[in-house]
């Protein structure tokens, strides 16, 4: 995080753990002495709609809960087509993207009104709109752990593993204990480790 403010977007589909991901990232950074602001966009869209959290990190001051256009430094996308939606508004040539590979089809696609983009073209689009793009099979790994809800933590692990976020396994574990529950620490530690190993 060599910028101030450092702007991160976590996006996905309602129910994927978007809010928890941004909360845990924010909690770790507040512990490190940063001023962190998280703006969440859900409302009625929590039911299968597009969701997005804006995380603003600064040593200087408390920033607003929404990013100015095209100012994202890092994008963590829990769903690939949502990555494209966010990059259109907040991406720039320097944005680094960490993207889960598993698509979630909108009800509009299920019913046949519109179609979902082919995987290779979607990846190409994300790459062309990012300085670097990491594609992480986070949900597949989470399903191997028999809990698809760990997708978000695996992605945080992946982003941290390649040095995009200053988060260690111990720091994440402390945030889980402080802001969620002590019972959830072990499984989240494991998911974080899985994430760091995928990209390494």
């Amino acid at each position: 995080m060599n910028k101030d403010p450092f702007n991160l977007v976590v996006c996905g589909v309602g129910g994927q753990g978007n809010v928890v991901a941004s909360l845990l990232i924010g909690a770790v950074l507040v512990d490190q002495g940063y001023k962190v602001t998280i703006g969440e966009t859900y409302g009625a869209s929590q039911r299968g709609g597009s969701v997005m959290s804006h995380v603003r990190v600064s040593r200087e001051r408390q920033y607003g809960p929404l990013l100015p256009p095209h100012s994202a430094d890092l994008l963590i996308a829990l769903e690939p087509s949502e990555a494209v939606r966010v990059l259109a508004q907040f991406g720039n040539p320097e944005t680094v993207s960490v993207v889960n590979t598993r698509p979630i089809h909108p009800v509009d696609v299920i019913c046949g009104d519109i179609s979902y983009p082919p995987t290779d073209r979607l990846r190409q689009r994300i790459k062309s709109l990012s300085s670097t793009a990491y594609f992480v099979p986070a949900t597949d790994k989470a399903l191997e752990m028999e809990n698809p809800l760990l997708t978000n933590i695996i992605l945080i692990g992946a982003a941290s593993g390649v040095g995009l976020l200053p988060i260690t396994e111990d720091a994440l574990a402390k945030a889980v204990k402080d802001y969620m529950s002590v019972q959830k620490v072990e499984i989240n530690r494991k998911a974080f480790r899985v994430g760091t190993q995928i990209v390494n």
Partner: peptide
Amino acid sequence: KDKDYARQASADLHKFAPARSLAFC
């Protein structure tokens, strides 16, 4: 700044980021 990027990022957006209508779970 980044005008080309913005143009490229929003071109045919609906084809790459299909609409997500609200629906019952």
